[in-house]
Design a binder for these strands. Structure first.
Length: 260
DNA sequence: ATGTCGACGAATCGTCGA
């Protein structure tokens, strides 16, 4: 029973809905975490996704942020944001997917960007990452089959950046951010992309400016982490660059994990 | 500092965030 789970920062679901529907038609994944919806829940296109075969749970807000999970399998026990962490920004949604191989806890996050080290936004990123870590620890204790997906806004290693030297200790590259990523791995999660031999210079985000995509000046900041119980069934993890070539693309590409 | 998107409010652009 092959199952696929994806993550995609769509940078405005209103603008990107046709592309998301087209991608799902070509890639009928079991579930996908979406980030940066930039719309309120009353505007969430439940009907369009239902026609495509997906139930959705959403946690949106006006203008910024906003996350959702689409699933072909029934969802339950939905959590919005980090319960122990007061936050005006809609960045996390969690659901249990009732899959043929058993329940799968899916945590979908739009991690804080952080602007630049030393800024107030960076301090918020650090607090948020700590709160998320505590939440993931608790979720893992309750749900052995767990995946953490989303736009992490962290390039975990130098090979995840087009210019690790020039961008050393800048945002997405700092030791503090990378330590938070490592802390998630130390909880027992595995970066599914790095379970496999991958081509060099594979990224999931490219700046809109300066022909970033055309020059492959990107970062791998969108990730799918899996728990020990899921790890054995992972057979592939790929970035799908194709949607980045669309007219009016998101600045991010989808990442897809296959569970065999 | 710049570049390019997208949302927003109050403009037919300026500002913010990424």
């Amino acid at each position: 029973m092959v199952m696929k789970i994806a993550t995609w920062n769509v940078n405005s679901l209103s603008v990107r809905l046709p592309q998301v529907l087209a991608w799902l038609a070509a890639n009928p994944v079991d579930a996908i975490g979406l980030q940066e919806l930039k719309l309120t829940d009353d505007k969430f296109p439940h009907d369009a996704f239902k026609e495509a075969g997906y139930e959705a749970v959403a946690f949106g807000q006006k203008t910024y942020n906003g996350v959702a999970i689409l699933s072909r399998h029934p969802m339950a026990d939905v959590v919005r944001n980090i319960p122990a962490h007061e936050d005006a920004q809609a960045r996390v949604i969690i659901a249990t997917l009732d899959t043929p191989t058993g329940p799968l806890r899916l945590i979908n996050g739009y991690f804080v960007n952080g602007q630049e080290p030393g800024s107030e936004k960076f301090a918020y990123k650090m607090r948020w990452l700590q709160a998320l870590q505590d939440l993931v620890r608790a979720e893992m204790a309750a749900h052995p089959r767990l995946a953490l997906v989303g736009d992490f806004n962290v390039a975990p290693e130098d090979r995840d950046s087009y210019d690790p030297v020039g961008l050393r200790e800048t945002i997405h590259h700092t030791t503090e951010e990378r330590n938070h990523f490592k802390a998630l791995l130390e909880l027992g999660l595995t970066d599914s992309f790095r379970m496999f031999e991958q081509p060099e210079k594979i990224y999931s985000w490219w700046d809109y400016r300066m022909l970033g995509f055309q020059k492959n000046r990107g970062l791998r900041i969108d990730h799918i982490l899996v728990s020990e119980a899921l790890r054995a069934s992972v057979t592939a993890c790929v970035v799908d660059r194709a949607p980045r070539k669309n007219p009016q693309p998101s600045d991010h590409a989808p990442v897809v994990v296959t569970l065999g």
